[in-house]
Design a binder for these strands. Sequence first.
DNA 1: AATGAATGAGGGTTCATTCAT
DNA 2: AATGAATGAACCCTCATTCAT
Lengths: 196, 196, 196, 196
Amino acid sequence: MPRGRKVDSDGEVTRQLLLEKAIEQFAEYGFHSTKISDIVNKAKVTQPTFYLYFESKEAIFLRITGSFQMQLIDIITACFLEENLEEHSLKLQINSNLKSIFTFFEKNPLLTKIGFVETDSARELKNSMVKQITENLKSGQRLGYYSDLYPMNLVAESLVGSIERLTLNEILTNKSRPIELAKVLVDIYFTGIQKK
Amino acid sequence: MPRGRKVDSDGEVTRQLLLEKAIEQFAEYGFHSTKISDIVNKAKVTQPTFYLYFESKEAIFLRITGSFQMQLIDIITACFLEENLEEHSLKLQINSNLKSIFTFFEKNPLLTKIGFVETDSARELKNSMVKQITENLKSGQRLGYYSDLYPMNLVAESLVGSIERLTLNEILTNKSRPIELAKVLVDIYFTGIQKK
Amino acid sequence: MPRGRKVDSDGEVTRQLLLEKAIEQFAEYGFHSTKISDIVNKAKVTQPTFYLYFESKEAIFLRITGSFQMQLIDIITACFLEENLEEHSLKLQINSNLKSIFTFFEKNPLLTKIGFVETDSARELKNSMVKQITENLKSGQRLGYYSDLYPMNLVAESLVGSIERLTLNEILTNKSRPIELAKVLVDIYFTGIQKK
Amino acid sequence: MPRGRKVDSDGEVTRQLLLEKAIEQFAEYGFHSTKISDIVNKAKVTQPTFYLYFESKEAIFLRITGSFQMQLIDIITACFLEENLEEHSLKLQINSNLKSIFTFFEKNPLLTKIGFVETDSARELKNSMVKQITENLKSGQRLGYYSDLYPMNLVAESLVGSIERLTLNEILTNKSRPIELAKVLVDIYFTGIQKK
DNA sequence: AATGAATGAGGGTTCATTCAT
DNA sequence: AATGAATGAACCCTCATTCAT
C-alpha cells in the first residue's frame, strides 16, 4: 500500500472509527487481550495511524472509560443526591432513578461492559455509588420512611450488587428492559417477596 | 549452584508451595498480570520446576479455580436443592444457607477472589446458582410462601448480585461477618426495608 | 485549519527558519536525537513543509555542516598555507591564525558544535587541518626555526587536539576569549611551561 | 531452531560473548546505531537471551563504559594525585604517567573509543582529569618548577585535548606507540618546539 | 526432583517520509 | 507554499515454554 494520505480521508472519521473498534475489542476481550493490531486491523489503518490519534493503549482505554464514567457519575449524582424525599413519591422516584440508570446502560452496552463491569477503576465508582445510596437511605430512615433495623450501608451494597448483576445478565443480554428491572428492585427492597 | 534434587526435597511439598504462591499472585494481580516468574520466585524454585508440576499457566489456574468451584457447587447444591420447604423454618433455613456460603468465602478469601469474583468461568457458576435459587423460589411460590407478583429469575439474579458484592466488599475486607450479612439479606428479600 | 499558502508567507523565510531551528536542535541534541518533528514544531510548520525545502534529515544536516566546514576550510587554508615564513613574525603570525580560528568558532557556537566537535565528517576536516599544520611546521623546521627533534605530525595532532578541547570547553562556554587561548597555545607550543 | 538449552552451553561464556560483541558494535557504530539484534546475531543467540544477562541496551552500555571509566579513573588518580613532586624526577614521572595512560588505551582500543572518545559521560571524566592535572600543575608552579605566566587550567585543558586526539588518531590506529607519544607531549609541554 | 540456559512468538511504540488536498 | 492524514520499517522488550544437565 502506498504511503501518505488516502483519498477523501478525514481525521475525525478515523479517530471515531478507531474509538469504535477499540470499544468493541475492549468489550469483547478486555484490556490485556486487546491488541493495538486488532483495533487498527478492524479499522483498516496501520499501527502508526493509531498513535496519530491516541498516545498509547492505556490512553485510549482511559479516554473510553473516563468519559463513560463521567456521564454515569452525573446520572447517579442527579438520582441520589438531589432527591426530594417525600413519602408518597419516594417509591416512584427511586423507581424512576433506577430506570434511568438501567436505560443508560441499555443505550451503551459495550461501554457499560468496559467501564462499569470489568474495569478496576469501576470499583471506586461503585463504591461512591454505594456511599451516595447509603446517605440517601439514611435520610429516609431519619424521616421515618424506612425501618430502623437495617444497616443502610449493607443495604446499599446489596442494591448496587443487584444492579450490577441485573445489568450484566439482563440488560446487556437484552433479556429484560429497564422498566421491569426497576420495578422488581423497588418491590423487593421496599416490601420483600414474602406473601403477607 | 548444584543442580538436581535438593536435600530434603519432596515433590508434593513443592507442588503445594507453588499452588499456594500461585493463589496469592492470582488473587492480588489476576490471571494476566501474574507471571510464572513471579510465582516461582516467591516459591524460591526455578521456572522449569513449575512445569514439572503443572502443564501450563492455564492449567494451574484451572486447577485452582476448578477445585474451589467444585467445593462451592457442592455447598450451593446442598443449600438450595435438598431443602425441605416448610413455612415455619423457611426463613431460618435460607438464613443458614446464606451463612454457610458466606462462611465458605470467609474461610477462603484468596480463592474466592480468584474463583468467584474475577474469573470468567465464575459466570457459569453464578448462572447455575441463579438457576437453582430460581427453582427454589418458584417452589416456594407454588407453595404460597412468596408473592406471585415476582419474576423469580430476576429475584434470584438480584440476590446473587447482592451476595457477590457483599462478599467482595464486606467479607473479603473483613468488614462484616457472615451472620450479619445473611440476616440482612433475608430481612431485605423477605420483608423489605419500608416501615410498616 | 485552512490549507495552502499562508498570507505573507515566503518560501525563503521558511527555509531559513527551518535551518535555524535545525541548527539549534542539532547543536543541543545531536543528529540522532534530533527529530524532524522537533524541528518543524519549533519552526511552527508541518512536516511536509520540511520536505519542501530539504530532501531528508541527512540532507539538511549535510547542508548545515557542509557550508560551515567550507568556511572553516577557507580560514584554515588561509592561515596555514599561504603563510610567509619569516622568523621574526612567525610567532605573531601563528598567534593571529589561532585567534582567527577561535574567533570563527566564537561567532558560530552552534555550528561549531555541530560541524566541528560532534560530527563524524569533522574527522576528515580535522585530519586535513593536521596535514596542513604538519607541512607548515616541517617548513619551519627546514628553515631552522623549530627543533629537529620533533615528529611534526604528532605536534600537529597534539595542537589540533588542544584547539578542539579549548574550543569546546572554553570558547563554547564563554569562559575564555580567542585572544587568551591563542596566546596560551603559542606560548606552550613555542617555549613550554618549564621555568628556565 | 529448537527451544531450550543448547548442548554444552554456559551462561558465563554467553554473557562474555554478548559483552564482547556489544563492545565491537558500540565501538563501530555508537550507542544509537547499535541494535540489540546486531549484538545477538553476532553472538549467535536470540534477543531474549540478551535480556537474560542484561537488563536493557542502556544497562549493558553503562556496564561497559562504567567499568572502563572506573579503571581509567584509578589510573589517572594514581598518576596525577599521589605524585611526589621533586624537580629532578618530575619530567620522568609525567612521562611515565602519560605512558601508562596511553598504554591503557592501547590495550583497550574498543573500550577507549566507547568510553573515552564518544560517550557523553566521558565529558565529566575528562573534566575531572583536567581538574586533577590543573591542581598538579599549580603545585609545580608553587614549587617554582613551572613558569608563573601560565593559566594552568588552560594548560591542562590543552593537554587533555592533546591526549584525546593522539589517542584517537595515533593509538587507536596503531600508528604510534605510547612511549613516543608520552615523550612528544612532555617535550612540547615542558620545553616547546622552538629552536633555542 | 530440580536447575541453568535458551528460544518462539509476539506486543507496544517511534520516526522519517509520502500522498492528496 | 503549505497542510492534513497516513504508512513502511524498524526497534526494544516480555513472557510462557522447553531442552540439556
